[in-house]
Amino acid sequence: MRKILQDKEIAVLESLKAAQGPMGSWNLVEKLEEKGYYISSATIGRILNSLEKRGYAKKDGNNGRIITQEGLYALSNNKIKNHINEQTQTLEQIISTTVLDDFIIVLQARKAIERETARLAAENITHEELSHIRKILDEQRERHAKGESIADCDIAFHKAIAKASRNKVLETLYMMLFSYGQQTSIFEYIRRQVRAVYMKSHTEIYEALKKHDAELAEKCMIGHIDSLIEDVTKYWDLFY
């Protein structure tokens, strides 16, 4: 059964939602004309029948039809999908070769700084800080499973490591580089387009920190940021 709502069906459902009571085909003709849709009563009748079969509308005796809870959900989901599509189009328009070049430059600088923050963090990190990072990874995994943005978790993960390094200069340098937008929705979009695997690198870094293995932590961080550079380069090659 077709789930995707067409524009005219959306207009009908929105009219039913806004109505104070049940509406029939003739009432909907006027309402849809106000929205710029000039549709015959017979066509609206067919649309109503289709919506009713899918559970989005139901009859209220001989008075007409009203929107159902399923219909309200369908309208809400449609708005969410439209918003996501608009955001995707905006991101595609914003991304350029200049942006990609800047990403690579900043990632190279991050590698120089974060390999050292990871090494120092492995030596100095406390049990409480490890627990905090574990919670960040758990939240990141949950958000990823739900298809939600994990940019905030990414920032929190790297900030926690920089703080655990006990080196205020390196921590400040990381915060300066983070402000360049490396962990924004744009970067997240780029990595999603190349189907990058994200959690693996973070988990490996966490395990190295947990072992207090400075050399391994540094190696894992280098590998992580190298993979980010590779993702940006791959996107560049695919789309530019």
Rank of each mutant, 00 (worst) to 15 (best):
M221C: 13
Q20F: 00
S185A: 13
T43M: 14
G61I: 10
I190Y: 00
A214T: 01
L5Y: 01
I155G: 06
Y206R: 12
K8D: 15
K81A: 14
L16G: 00
F157N: 10
T68W: 09
A112G: 02
A217M: 10
E129C: 09
H202L: 13
D231H: 06
K219D: 10
G223R: 08
L48T: 03
Y235L: 10
I10C: 08
A156H: 11
L170W: 03
I222V: 15
G223D: 06
R166Q: 15
I67C: 07
L130M: 09
L28H: 06
S41C: 06
S201R: 11
S50G: 11
N77G: 08
E52I: 02
T126Y: 12
L209D: 04
E218H: 06
T172A: 15
Q89P: 01
A164L: 09
L91W: 03
N167P: 03
R115Q: 14
V106R: 05
L5G: 04
L51S: 04
N124Y: 07
T203R: 15
L209K: 09
N82A: 10
E34F: 01
N62K: 11
R110C: 03
E70V: 05
K210S: 13
I113V: 15
V12Y: 03
T68C: 09
G147R: 00
R143K: 14
L209N: 08
Q69D: 14
S96M: 08
E139F: 00
G147T: 02
V232R: 05
S50A: 13
S40L: 07
E30M: 11
L173Q: 05
A151V: 11
T126V: 08
D60Q: 09
M221T: 11
Q6K: 15
G24I: 03
K111Y: 03
N85M: 11
W236A: 02
A162T: 06
S50C: 03
G64S: 10
N167T: 10
Y206H: 12
D7N: 14
L32P: 01
A164W: 02
L13H: 00
L32N: 07
E116V: 11
K211P: 02
A164F: 08
E188C: 02
A122N: 11
A112Y: 01
E33R: 15
E207H: 12
M175K: 12
K234F: 05
M23W: 00
L137M: 14
R54P: 01
R191S: 06
F157L: 10
E92W: 05
S149T: 13
